[in-house]
């Protein structure tokens, strides 16, 4: 019997597989397809203080081995998330979830975290300071160590739950930002968000997505994510939730070897809605192949 358990800041997960925010809604679309309680957890749709429609459409572009999205944090706002989405989520998911929150000011972040703080089914907060699809916020907080520190401190001040900061890869030195988060009290790092990308339609000769640019995700970004996780693992002592192009059990093991304690699966959910179930079912076989008994033993094993 293979041991798939991992531990995020005292929270024990049955396995490291967590569908990534923005690719899994609040779980119930997928609960129609399979029992989502097999997951380690999932990260719910990025939630902000106010309701947001997001960016104009088209919001999606195809890429080689990946996709661009410019959804722009569409969500009903934290009040409605608490009143409407979380009760629906509870009906299909009995484990704790990762609460993904975004904001446009330091106060926005702490407001949303504080509002959600009393929800018992939240295991950890994942504070997104890295959304490439919103102006005057989002990624702006994730591109400077000073701002990342401010958001971290503000969120830590309003909750006793672990706070993980989700980092942007669109920076010169991701290690400096991860360190700033750790020094400001972050309990963990979640990385990486999408890479800022673009496609142009040859027929219209204009950008494919209405917002011109968007977040590039999918298998194409896996090596970039892996490299950054490897670098940050060397520099910090807090756990890392790794993500970026993961679509197989082998990818999960590779990312854990780089330094991830848990692994999120994003774009792959949109192409194969059963991918997280398939990865969880496949992990014991791949562990056997590579002579791994206990998954948590391999975290950072490549260093």
């Amino acid at each position: 019997m293979k041991d798939l358990k991992v531990n995020l800041s005292g929270w024990e997960l049955d396995n490291p597989i967590i569908p990534a925010s923005g690719t899994y809604g609040f779980g119930y679309e997928f609960a129609d397809l399979y029992d989502i309680n097999i997951l380690g957890s999932f990260s719910f749709k990025g939630t902000t203080k106010e309701a947001r429609f997001g960016n104009p459409t088209p919001r999606i572009a195809e890429c080689y081995s990946g996709m661009i999205n410019s959804v722009g944090l569409q969500n009903p706002g934290v009040e409605k998330v608490i009143a409407e989405e979380l009760p629906k989520m509870r009906k299909v998911f009995c484990k704790k979830v990762v609460a993904n929150v975004s904001g446009f000011s330091v106060d926005d972040y702490s407001y949303t975290v504080e509002k959600l703080n009393n929800e018992e089914d939240i295991g950890i907060f994942e504070v997104n300071i890295s959304c490439p699809n919103v102006h005057n916020g989002g990624m702006a907080f994730g591109t400077s160590p000073e701002n990342a520190a401010l958001v971290t401190k503000a969120c830590k001040a309003v909750t006793d739950k672990p706070v993980y900061i989700k980092l942007s890869p669109n920076v010169t030195d991701i290690v400096a930002i991860a360190k700033a988060c750790e020094e400001s009290g972050a309990d963990g790092i979640s990385m990486i968000n999408t890479l800022l990308g673009m496609r142009i339609d040859l027929r219209t000769k204009k950008p494919v997505v209405a917002n011109k640019m968007g977040g590039f995700s999918g298998p194409a970004i896996f090596p970039v994510a892996l490299r950054m996780i490897y670098q940050v693992y060397e520099a910090v002592n807090i756990p890392i939730i790794g993500m970026g192009g993961v679509s197989t059990a082998e990818d999960v093991i590779e990312m854990m070897l780089a330094g991830a304690t848990a692994v999120q699966v994003g774009a792959a959910n949109l192409v194969n809605p059963y991918v997280c179930r398939d990865i969880i079912n496949d992990l014991p076989r791949v562990m056997e192949k590579y002579k791994i008994e206990k998954l948590s033993d391999i975290i950072g094993g490549a260093h």
């Binding site: 679309e29 749709k45 429609f53 997001g54 919001r59 999606i60 999205n69 959804v71």
Partner: peptide
């Protein structure tokens, strides 16, 4: 018609506003 990511309601890639909400 709209450009879609998933096609089954997960990604919010093809949202529109209507009288009855998004």
């Amino acid at each position: 018609e709209e450009r879609m990511g998933c096609g089954f309601g997960a990604c919010m890639g093809c949202s529109c506003k209507t009288v009855y909400g998004n």
